[in-house]
């Protein structure tokens, strides 16, 4: 299959011209492209318009999707207890990881090299030593690097915002390595600030940076990976994370 790039381009231009011509020829009313949204005002579900407490709504929906919120106490039912102080994030995370310490080698905790200084400032990297092996991933990382450990245990990532309407966490990944954090590990641990919870899908998209501002890919994540392809029975951890763990802080 050898197509010279020049003839390829010419064929591409010809196909484009013919397809566009067919679409234009039949278009009933000719006009400019509506690059702006069709809907001047988004039509939201009634419950979103009514909702006062975004935090409660987000936590309830995310939990219904099998997200787990880490708290300082043992088991907390009240939403307010699920919002922890930023200063205790490090300790709460360490306590969680301690319960998951493997018997053999220490499990991997992946984090993005660009965020290293942030996690250091929070005191996390030092604090979790002994429970896991913090490992940075960078843009140079290839799929092959994980062949020895195809199922890294943990990853740590910051969400750009969260959506109360659907219980969704939003990640704006600037590199491929960051995207790996969202999909590769068995347990995906997410840091989210309470003030970053927005009401609707539309509000979340506004917060996603443009390509010009450095975005590579944006991911809206609602609960852990799941499948119901075998006899419609639901299972977590189809290909992506089996668990989605949230550190929600003030």
């Amino acid at each position: 299959m050898a197509i010279s790039s020049e003839s390829d381009t010419r064929q591409n231009a010809e196909s484009r011209a013919r397809i566009v011509a067919r679409l234009r020829e039949t278009k009933k009313a000719k006009g400019k492209a509506h690059t702006l949204s069709v809907l001047s005002q988004p039509v939201l579900p009634k419950f979103v318009e009514r909702e006062q407490g975004k935090t409660e709504a987000f936590v309830a929906r995310a939990e219904a999707l099998s997200c787990r919120f880490l708290t300082e106490g043992k088991t907390e039912k009240k939403t307010v207890a699920k919002v922890i102080a930023k200063s205790s994030v490090s300790k709460v995370l360490r306590d969680f990881l301690a319960t998951r310490r493997g018997k053999k080698a220490l499990p991997l905790l992946l984090f993005d090299v660009l965020e290293k200084s942030y996690w250091q400032r929070l005191g996390i990297l030092k604090n979790v030593e002994g429970c896991c092996r913090p490992t940075e991933v960078s843009e140079e990382v290839e799929g092959g690097d994980f062949e020895a450990t195809p199922f890294p245990a943990f990853s740590l990532q910051r969400a750009v915002c969260a959506i109360a309407e659907t219980g969704t966490l939003v990640f704006a990944n600037r590199t491929r390595a960051q995207a790996l954090l969202t999909f590769l590990p068995t347990v995906h641990i997410v840091l989210l600030a309470e003030r970053d919870i927005v009401g609707s899908l539309e509000q979340a998209f506004v917060r996603v940076p443009s390509s010009a501002a450095g975005l590579w890919a944006c991911h809206l994540v609602s609960g852990p990976s799941r499948t119901a392809d075998i006899e419609q029975k639901l299972h977590m951890g189809a290909h992506g994370p089996k668990e989605l763990v949230v550190l929600l802080h003030r």
């Binding site: 660009l114 140079e140 659907t166 969704t168 491929r176 390509s211 890919a217 609602s222 992506g240």
Partner: peptide
């Protein structure tokens, strides 16, 4: 019957290097 699929992703950005 879900309110949103588990993963909704946008691909196409240029991205940044380290």
């Amino acid at each position: 019957g879900q309110s949103l699929g588990t993963y909704v992703s946008l691909y196409g950005g240029t991205g940044r290097g380290t």
